[in-house]
Write a protein that binds this DNA or RNA. Structure first.
Length: 270
DNA sequence: TCAAGATGATCAG
DNA sequence: TGATCCTCTTGAT
């Protein structure tokens, strides 16, 4: 589930087992062999996330830059590593645990300058305490593009993916095709505050739950269903089903190549 | 056994 | 906007 909260949590978990430790770094699949060899046997300094990007810094200077993309997965297991199974792009082995990366869209060795460039391109990240929500609002309010597309643009806002997009707009009762220029500062302030709360909760629990207690299906007399992504949601991937709040049928369409979901009654176009 | 789809991003046209 | 890449799971045949 690679949205920003996943990477934030992953960085913390990697620090817990590898920070300050000498680690063995390999690429069983072979596609990251040169990069792995450069830092193999070195001390991992710190893992950090920025939006959906992950950076593993080594005391000797190099940084491993990882982006999970749509299907990437980085798993940490305790104990000694078994023989690699499948396409393991990167494997890190420490004294008490090991981690394996599969399917990432990016796994490369970069320097501090390149890391700064990657971070500079990103919009404010709701998971960072020093993030400036006004910076995102300036971009949104200057755009005629749909707010549903702007929320997914990582140069506008970092870390928000398809699930948080669908759910934050539902909770704000805002139609996803509303042009950015029509979103007021007050409305944006509420969406930002909600994203901060939702994503922080996602970091703590490792899942995306967005349904307020009073709207839970049990409370509404309906059968509860937890989606594949591991949480209870209002509209994400619920096309054709009843809205938890008003019982209208949740709709879907493709917006800029990605599935979009909304409730036509709770999120009326104005 | 094979095709489709998935929480992402980039590039060409 | 469509094609492409990355890997794995699910469902159809």
């Amino acid at each position: 589930m690679p949205e920003g909260h996943t990477l934030f949590r992953l960085a913390a978990d990697l620090n817990a087992v590898f920070a300050g430790q000498q680690v063995e770094v390999t690429s069983p699949q072979g596609r990251f062999s040169d990069g792995a060899a450069t830092v193999d046997g070195h001390v991992m300094d710190l893992a950090e996330s920025a939006g959906k990007h992950l950076f593993l810094r080594f005391e000797s200077g190099p940084v491993i830059h990882v982006h999970l993309g749509l299907i990437g997965a980085f798993r940490i297991e305790e104990g000694d590593p078994p023989e690699p199974v499948g396409a393991v792009r990167l494997r890190i082995v420490g004294p008490s645990a090991y981690a394996e990366l599969r399917g990432a869209i990016t796994c490369e060795l970069i320097d501090e300058a390149k890391m700064a460039t990657v971070i500079d391109r990103l919009g404010p990240d709701p998971l960072r305490l020093d993030a400036d929500a006004d910076k995102a609002f300036a971009r949104i309010h200057a755009s005629k593009k749909a707010i549903g597309a702007l929320l997914m643009d990582q140069t506008v806002l970092a870390g928000v993916g398809n699930v948080y997009r669908a759910e934050s707009l539902f909770r704000a009762r805002l139609h996803p095709l509303t042009p950015g220029v029509k979103v007021s500062r007050r409305r944006w302030g509420a969406i930002w505050a909600d994203l901060v709360e939702l994503m922080d909760y996602g970091v703590q629990t490792g899942r995306i739950d967005t349904v307020r207690p009073e709207h839970e299906p049990e409370a509404m007399g309906r059968e509860a269903r937890v989606d594949d992504h591991g949480g209870e949601v209002y509209v994400y991937r619920r096309a054709g089903q009843q809205c938890h709040v008003c019982s209208s049928i949740v709709r879907t369409r493709i917006l800029e190549g990605r599935n979009l979901f909304w409730c036509p009654t709770c999120q009326r176009r104005r």
